[in-house]
């Protein structure tokens, strides 16, 4: 009689760790603080995967996200922070999916195709939004007026509020 092993699926775990390391490397290039925070984040994500715990993975990913913000504050160019943020979300999403799949289907089941499609879609969505944001950033404002960026900022915050309430 085989017994189901409900630990996180392999492919997703590997993708998550690779993505987390990439996010760490991108941020770490520009800031020692980001490197330090990110390293702790990656280790916690790995721990969360080993223990199959969503909450631990989320804490680790949040730290990793914090390291991206720190890199941005310390002068990383927008292209790098955007890419790093997308990779961080991919890491969290892949890890969380791997844990779910492990719990529902176990390690024995073949889930590689599902995981690759899922992580690919997440990476795609992130790349498209990051591209949009980057394009917005490239618009020459000409004047030094704060009006346009502030209004766009308000628009973004209101969007976040809307999504929160609809969640």
């Amino acid at each position: 009689m085989t017994e189901i092993v409900r630990s996180p699926a392999r492919t997703g775990s590997i993708v998550a760790l690779l993505a987390a390391l990439l996010a760490l490397a991108l941020g770490g290039l520009f800031s020692a603080v980001a490197l330090a925070i990110g390293l702790i984040g990656v280790l916690i994500v790995a721990l969360g995967l080993a223990l199959a715990r969503h909450d631990i993975v989320t804490v680790g990913s949040t730290l990793l996200f914090g390291s991206v913000v720190a890199a941005g504050l310390q002068g990383a160019p927008p292209g790098i922070t955007l890419g790093s943020a997308v990779v961080t979300v991919v890491a969290w999403d892949s890890a969380s999916t791997a844990i779910d799949l492990g719990a529902q289907l176990g390690r024995e089941a073949s889930t590689t195709r599902l995981e690759l499609v899922h992580s690919g879609a997440t990476a795609f969505v992130g790349t498209v939004t990051a591209g949009l944001g980057w394009a917005l950033f490239q618009i020459p404002l000409g004047e030094t007026s704060l009006t346009v960026p502030v209004l766009l900022l308000v628009a973004v915050i209101c969007l976040a509020g809307m999504f929160w309430y609809r969640e």
């Binding site: 941005g72 990383a76 997308v86 969505v125 929160w164």
Partner: peptide, 21 residues
Amino acid sequence: AGEPAVILIGVVGIGYAAYAR
């Protein structure tokens, strides 16, 4: 912090919030 690069990270987050909707 007046750092547009960081604000842009937030835009990525909003994108995923829309995706999750």
